[in-house]
Write a protein that binds this DNA or RNA. Structure first.
Length: 827
RNA sequence: GCGAAAGUGGCGGAAUUGGCAAACGCGCUGGACUUAGGAUCCAGUGAGGUUAAACUCUUAGGGGUUCGAGUCCCCUCUUUCGCACCA
């Protein structure tokens, strides 16, 4: 007989909904806790990954409620973007319709899993009441000088017909469709995330983030310290600033390397249309595959520009080369090349017979340009460097920079790998950028009163080679809000990562029609106490959100520095060791499991199979194990509920208890203690469930509970009553039902945590292990308060210990309290 | 190449501060029961060894520290992830 999971789950889901126990109050006297899980795209189908992600969040939510906190666990949908547009195309419909249908379908499935979500706070990014405030945020960023427009070469996905941010290019392919990314010269909108680069490097204000994610962001931001030095174009006043992390090698510069995109090069090209070789080379490099060009394996190529520049430190005249290995958008876009001490410059100089100059010597002065087969890139003793000769190169760096600065040739500086965030997308299904282009006034922001700029509905969604918004003249053509002249709307929409950069704040005040959210509500709920999501957002969403949050802080909308205090990057659900995917055909439908074994079984399996941050390997047999476990709990309590109720009602009678029950008491308190550690200190739910199973096994070992005396029955009932509480975060429906079976009227979330008594965490008698030189030679059952000397004596008397010590002399005896006696012996 | 994390039975995984390796679950073996079930209950289950013990070996491999190492240190290998001409 199976327990009636279906009816139980429906019953409690309805009770929770009616009693609104998961609808968080706006304000509360209780300490708040804000639990947030991944912001889903409403695919219409709940995947096993969703089930796993939200099972963790729901466990946290219910634990924090049991702890007595005021908990908010909201849910919403990241519903703009390519997938929604593609879905609509596929179903020959409009994304506005299909998105709402999918949202309704998903909400039902979330409820079917029994997640305690606050549906009063639901947001969807594609609804005007939400995206209105995204546009408002854009305007605020613009007003603060953090938005600009720039024409430059962009990552372009032909498949998606849109540009991509650097973070969204994976191995040269689009992060969405994985088709090749090309370069296209386009005018685009940017958010100046680099203004916050320094602060984004600082993780001191987060409480608990995985080291891995912080490292990935730090590497992505990629700060390097060095010097900016101005070289000068020969016979000219024109400066060519370079950035270097090795100012100690500056006397070794033998050429200057520029990319074809460099403005100086572009100027030479424009003034010299007949130089076919230079034009050809630049054209070839600019249009080369960006991935290939930026790969270390690509063969270095270049062409001599015919120009020279002057090294300000020693007046040396050096050749200027146009090359394929220098990037325009890093540092100053110009490199002082030191072939003797940089491998890239070395390779290039060898190929084109450019002279080299040795300026760093190793400690045994064995370096010789004629015999070097590679650059010497380490620190050493400076040589051929005028007044710096003989100095240690590492410590001389600062002095060289200082000397250059004194003479006005440069300065100490640093640079970042991070680029500004390109947010323009040439797609229909996104948040319109609230800008009007006026032939007289230029870029004009749409006035607040006219927000939101609504997406027109009458658009043919489909594969088009241009932005569909261009095809709606009545939307496109407007008069300038400033001067009234006929003007045109911006047709770019915002990257959906803009929408997801602030949604967690909107949850604090989701229905506000006057502002994005009331600052006092945001200040109450934020930061998010626990965020649960996938590692794939490490340098995208999680960095963008930190940037926008810091901006909102600077506006005074929020009053903390980090949006997500604790971050858990949860693992994937795999099958046969591989990520589940439709193409591999190894997916599992959560609904199938729910229908047969119940949502509780699925949730217990997902939480038990591995710790939350690790991948979960799907196992049909494992699901059966969880199902059997819940059935055993059900049978135990259901068939003994009368005596358990009786035992719970007896108070604490003073009677002798059997050794068997004393052991059960120890097991129960110990299991609850470990559950506390695992659930509240460590977030290791797999072992919390294991402890619950152990307690169940310990209770089942008591065969005839009806024969227990009053004191024993009280202990038995205590142990049984702990089970629903311990199960509640993972299997809330069956837990709530069993809790009620035991005569409780208050729901579990309001009934407090299961409690243990420290007094019962140790046994009266303890088994000591006796080791000789680390090998177990015997065991001793002794009273817990035994005197160490007596213990040593007893240990030495053990027959097996005696035998093992034969022919040895004892050097030392170590007693580890409560654990072991360790004897060090030697010949 | 650089950086990070990891490597434990047939499988998923436990092991708090260096203190009985393999908890818990799955699977498997044998048995009981019969309402024949995706049931339940009992016993067993790292490898070798033994009637049973004793004993030996075992946390990727090798070395070290220690009375004692999955855990700390050094070297090597493997896997996964991130970055990768960043001057």
């Amino acid at each position: 007989m199976e327990y009636p999971f279906g009816s139980i789950e429906r019953k409690w889901q309805q009770v929770w909904r009616e009693k609104r126990i998961f609808n968080a109050p706006q304000q509360s006297d209780k300490p708040k806790y804000y639990v947030l899980s991944m912001f889903p795209y409403p695919s219409g189908v709940l995947h096993i990954g969703h089930a796993s992600n939200y099972s963790i969040g729901d466990a946290v939510t219910r634990l924090k409620l049991m702890e007595g906190r005021s908990v908010m666990q909201p849910m919403g949908y990241d519903s703009f973007g390519m997938p929604a547009e593609n879905y609509a195309i596929l179903h020959n419909s409009h994304p506005r319709l299909t998105t709402e249908e999918n949202i309704a379908a998903m909400r039902k499935q979330f409820d079917g899993m029994g997640f305690g979500l606050d549906w009063d706070r639901e947001v969807s990014t594609c609804r005007p009441d939400y995206y209105r405030w995204g546009q408002y945020l854009f305007k605020k960023l613009y007003e603060k000088g953090l938005v600009y427009r720039k024409k430059s070469f962009q990552n372009w996905c032909e498949e998606c017909q849109t540009v991509l941010a650097n973070e969204q290019v994976e191995e040269g392919t689009c992060w969405r469709c994985h088709s090749a990314v090309e370069q296209k010269d386009l005018e685009q909108w940017y958010f100046k995330i680099t203004d916050y680069a320094e602060e984004l490097l600082d993780f001191s204000k987060v409480i608990d983030w995985p080291e891995r994610v912080m490292t990935m962001q730090k590497n992505w931001i990629g700060k390097s310290a060095g010097a900016k030095i101005d070289f000068t174009l020969q016979d000219s006043e024109t400066k060519i600033p370079i950035f270097t992390t090795r100012p100690d090698t500056i006397y070794g510069v033998t050429f200057m390397a520029l990319p074809p995109e460099h403005p100086l090069v572009q100027g030479w090209l424009a003034n010299d249309p007949d130089n076919a070789a230079m034009h050809d080379f630049c054209h070839k490099v600019i249009n080369a595959d960006k991935m290939l060009r930026s790969s270390a394996d690509t063969i270095k190529e270049g062409i001599f520009s015919g120009r020279y520049c002057i090294n300000p430190l020693n007046g040396a005249k050096v050749q200027i080369w146009i090359t394929n290995y220098v990037l325009m958008d890093y540092g100053t876009g110009a490199v002082m090349a030191v072939p003797a001490h940089d491998q890239r410059d070395f390779d290039f100089a060898k190929k084109y017979n450019i002279p080299m100059k040795l300026v760093i010597q190793n400690l045994d002065t064995s370096l010789n340009l004629n015999t070097m087969s590679e650059a010497y890139t380490e620190a050493g003793i400076m040589a051929n460097s005028a007044q710096f000769d003989g100095r240690d190169s590492e410590t001389a760096k600062a002095d060289i920079t200082a000397w250059a600065a004194e003479n006005g040739w440069g300065e100490q500086t640093h640079t970042y790998r991070l680029r500004d965030w390109g947010i323009s997308r040439q797609r229909y299904w996104g948040n319109p950028i609230p800008v009007i282009h006026c032939p007289k006034c230029g870029v004009v922001l749409v006035p607040d009163a006219d927000l939101p700029v609504q997406l027109p509905d009458n658009v043919q969604v489909g594969r088009t080679t241009s932005n569909p918004l261009l095809s709606v003249p009545e939307w496109l053509n407007v008069s300038c809000p400033k001067c009234g002249t006929a003007a045109r709307r911006e047709t770019d929409t915002m990257d959906t990562f803009v929408d997801s950069s602030w949604y967690y704040a909107r949850y604090a005040d989701p229905k506000n029609t006057d502002q994005p959210f009331a600052p006092e509500l945001a200040k109450h709920w934020l930061p998010v106490d626990q965020y649960i999501g996938g590692i794939e957002h490490a340098v995208m969403h999680l960095m963008y959100a930190r940037f926008i949050y810091k901006f909102m802080r600077d506006l005074g909308w929020v009053d903390s520095d980090e949006p997500f205090a604790r971050l858990l990057t949860q693992g994937m659900v795999t099958k046969d060791g591989a990520k589940m995917s439709k193409s591999k055909g190894n997916t599992v439908d959560p609904q199938y499991i729910i229908d047969r074994f119940g949502a509780d079984t699925l949730r217990v399996f997902l939480m038990f199979a591995s710790p939350p941050e690790k991948d979960v390997e799907w196992s049909d047999d494992g699901v059966m194990g969880s199902f059997r476990f819940l059935n055993r709990v059900w049978r135990l309590i259901d068939s003994h509920k009368d005596i358990i109720r009786k035992g719970l009602a007896t108070g604490n009678p003073q009677k002798e208890i059997s050794a068997e029950i004393a052991e059960l008491r120890y097991e129960a308190h110990h299991a609850i203690f470990r559950w506390h550690e695992d659930c509240l200190s460590r977030m290791q739910y797999n072992t919390a469930i294991a402890s619950t199973m152990e307690l169940l096994n310990a209770i089942i070992r008591i065969k005839m509970p009806q024969t227990l005396n009053a004191a024993e029955l009280a202990i038995y009932a205590f142990a049984c009553a702990a089970l629903p509480k311990m199960l509640y975060p993972f299997a809330p429906h069956i837990a709530e039902e069993l809790w009620q079976d035991l005569g409780n009227t208050i729901l579990l979330h309001d009934s407090g945590l299961p409690e243990y008594n420290k007094q019962y965490l140790c046994r009266d008698s303890i088994t000591y292990v006796v080791q000789i030189n680390g090998k177990i030679r015997g065991k001793l059952e002794v009273s817990a308060d035994i005197d160490p000397e007596a213990l040593k004596a007893q240990a030495l008397e053990l027959e097996n210990v005696q035998r093992s010590l034969d022919g040895f002399s004892i050097k030392k005896i170590i007693v580890v309290a409560g654990k072991m006696v360790s004897i060090a012996a030697g010949k």
